[in-house]
Simulated assay, not measured.
Amino acid sequence: MADQHLSVPSPHDGTRPPWYARTATTVGRPAVLTATLIMSMPGEYKVARLAGWSDPWAYGMPFALSAYAGIAAVVAATRPKGARGRLSAQLGATFAIILALAAQVVAHLVQTEHMNGNQAWLIAITSMVPPAVLAHLLHLAATPTPVTAPSTSVDTPVVERVDAPADPATAAVPPMPQQAPAIEPTPAPAPVVYRDPRCVIVRPLYADGTRPGTGAMRDALLAAGHGRVGDSTIRGTIRAEIEEHEPHLALLPPALHGRTA
């Protein structure tokens, strides 16, 4: 495929307007906008006064008409074709221009005594302007604006892929099926080595989840052939060493069948 090149005009190829033209456009637009707003305000204020508004409320008419025309024009220009609210914004912008033009014409006709400003139809139409503007602006605000995803398409040169002939000696070996990782067995805890061998006889008495009493430990020692062992040795030496190695055993509830704790 042939390479595609985008032609970007150079700022020095003579197609760009001169600096003074660009400056006049940049500075002139806000200047003209400000001048037209200032020139339109007296006529719109005059019409509001004719309709019965007193100061300072009559000054709201120029701001309402100017802001309404600007908002409707921006919404009509920024919403894509077929989007909800675009037609309504276009009609609103047209209506705002007609209102602004009519306000200027009526104000100057009345001021030059070519028209009587004290007419019922003129007062009625002018009185409906603020609520109509408010209702339409709320309608435009409630209409969702469609969000268009930016285009990510670019002219990318197409590179043809040429597959080299496969070499049997270096052909890719199909991957082996993935095997589950081997689970290493948990190492068993190291056996406890007691200083007193008689602890081995008493330790099984904790197997039922209770702390054996002195009598039960004495009976186990007698049955194992250790003779009669004193209570202080059973509790203070043998049981103490067992619970020293395994402190959680000391927290077990006492055995109910033990004769003494």
Rank of each mutant, 00 (worst) to 15 (best):
V129P: 13
V32T: 01
S88K: 11
E113C: 04
I71T: 11
V106W: 12
I38G: 13
V75P: 07
W53S: 01
G117C: 12
L87H: 13
V75S: 09
T78W: 10
F63E: 10
A64V: 03
A107F: 07
I98E: 14
M39D: 03
W121I: 00
M61D: 09
A103Q: 00
A51K: 06
W121D: 00
V105A: 14
Q111Y: 09
L33P: 11
W53A: 04
V129I: 15
L109I: 02
K81A: 12
R86S: 14
G43T: 01
R49T: 00
T36E: 08
L109S: 08
T34D: 11
T112Q: 12
V74I: 01
A89D: 07
A100C: 05
M128V: 01
L99T: 06
I71A: 12
I97M: 12
A72W: 07
L65W: 07
V106K: 06
R79I: 00
M115Q: 05
V110R: 00
A96W: 06
V129E: 14
Q119S: 06
K46E: 12
W57M: 06
A48M: 05
S66W: 15
E113M: 07
V47Y: 10
A64E: 00
N116K: 06
P130A: 09
L50C: 01
A31E: 06
T78G: 11
A58K: 02
V129C: 12
A67G: 08
N116R: 05
K81L: 09
V75T: 03
A64Q: 05
A120I: 02
G70T: 07
L65T: 05
V105P: 12
T126K: 04
T94P: 10
M41P: 08
A83S: 15
L122I: 03
A124R: 13
P42M: 11
A76R: 01
Q90I: 08
A83E: 13
L109Q: 12
A102R: 04
M61Y: 08
I38Y: 15
A51Q: 09
G52R: 07
V32S: 03
S127Y: 11
W57R: 07
P62E: 00
N116L: 09
Y59M: 11
A64Y: 00
A107Q: 06
L37M: 10
G70Y: 05
G70I: 00
W53G: 04
L101C: 03
A83K: 08
A58C: 13
V106N: 15
F95G: 15
V47E: 05
R79N: 00
G43R: 03
E113T: 04
K81R: 15
Y68V: 04
A58M: 09
A69R: 11
P62L: 03
M128P: 07
A35C: 10
W121P: 04
M39I: 03
A83T: 05
A103D: 08
N118Y: 02
R86L: 14
V105Y: 13
I123P: 01
Y68P: 03
G60P: 11
T78E: 13
A67I: 02
A102E: 01
G82C: 09
L109C: 14
Q111D: 14
T34Q: 13
L99N: 10
Y59A: 14
A100E: 08
A83P: 15
A69L: 11
F63Y: 07
V32I: 01
I38S: 15
